[in-house]
């Protein structure tokens, strides 16, 4: 009880400090652009974060869970039609990143499929303009977490996508299901006797 009170009070102090520092850092950013020094001294109170926003969000474990996407994409429908995750997320077994497909990949099918649907028309319009769909990331780590996450070893180890991403057969646009904090990762690593050395992920 007492502990949580300390933390709350600390939070208040932090918030005040942060808002002031934010404004200060904002003006120093402008100064940096005008002049030419190749570095800036940060006015930040903490060490491990590149900017104030990350500092705060990280401190309070804030990640948006429901992200508004430009297209009302539905995972559910695509999976119901027999598609596999890897049909679109092609990099998942090969590298660190699962890959968000680009608009060209969408249009290889939607050139002919469901072309009259309003959402598909939006996709086609992006392609016509030569623009990528501005998808917003759902699952990521703040830079200050210094995490290097590789999908491929997890896929190879037979970890189901749903273990972290939830059952996408029930979802439209993706939702951040797991906390993806270190406790979440470590529980699983311990369960499967995967390495728990810090250097496995943090470098």
């Amino acid at each position: 009880m007492a502990l949580s009170k300390v933390r709350t009070n600390l939070g208040v102090v932090l918030v005040v400090a942060v808002v002031i520092a934010t404004l200060a850092s904002c003006s120093s950013d402008k100064a940096k652009q005008a002049g030419h020094p190749s570095y800036v001294t940060s006015g930040q109170f903490t060490t491990a974060h590149p900017n104030m926003s990350d500092t705060l969000k990280d401190y309070f474990d804030v990640y948006p869970t429901h992200v508004q996407q430009p297209i009302a994409f539905t995972h559910k429908m695509h999976l119901e039609h027999g598609m596999q995750c890897t049909d679109c997320h092609k990099g998942v077994a090969e590298g660190p990143d699962a890959t968000i497909p680009n608009v060209q990949l969408c249009m290889t099918c939607h050139q002919v499929i469901a072309t009259d649907k309003p959402e598909i028309k939006k996709v086609a319009a992006y392609q016509k303009e030569g623009e990528e769909i501005p998808w917003r990331r759902v699952n990521w780590f703040y830079q200050s977490a210094h995490v290097k996450f590789y999908h491929s070893p997890h896929i190879r180890a037979g970890i189901d996508c749903a273990a972290c991403h939830g059952d996408m057969r029930q979802e439209t646009t993706a939702v951040r299901k797991a906390g993806l904090d270190m406790g979440f990762c470590l529980n699983c690593h311990k369960k499967y006797k995967a390495p728990t050395d810090c250097m496995t992920c943090h470098y």
């Binding site: 930040q44 060490t47 974060h49 590149p50 830079q143 200050s144 290097k148 470098y203």
Partner: peptide, 22 residues
């Protein structure tokens, strides 16, 4: 992209290129 960009206030040093080892 395989190596963290460190920020102000952090100590750093040679890692024997841990990213290459990994």
């Amino acid at each position: 992209p395989d190596v963290s960009v460190r920020s102000v206030g952090i100590m750093e040093k040679c890692t024997f290129c841990i990213q290459r080892i990994k």
